[in-house]
Amino acid sequence: MSEHTILALVSIITAGLTMALGAIGAAFGESRIGAAGMDALARQPDEAGAITRNQFVALAMVESTAIFCLVIALVLLFANPLLPAR
């Protein structure tokens, strides 16, 4: 096994781990935002517009971490600086 093969193997495994672990936190966070948003909607249906907008903003914020993980995984898979360009 050459050095490049080991590096590629580790990169692929790490990309999967990155995606999996990164998705966990974002999933929990987004679920809590969704629950809180539903609760707020049930309490104050008149403020549906503002609640929904702020909920989306918060979702986007939390999702950012997962997206960062996704980008890192993509970088590991497709633009790995340690591997020679294919």
């Binding site: 986007a60 997206i67 996704l70």
Partner: peptide, 13 residues
């Protein structure tokens, strides 16, 4: 950075 990466990540994924 988050704006750029979020949009890129979502669309690209």
């Amino acid at each position: 950075l988050a704006l750029a990466l979020r949009l890129f990540g979502n669309m690209m994924s």
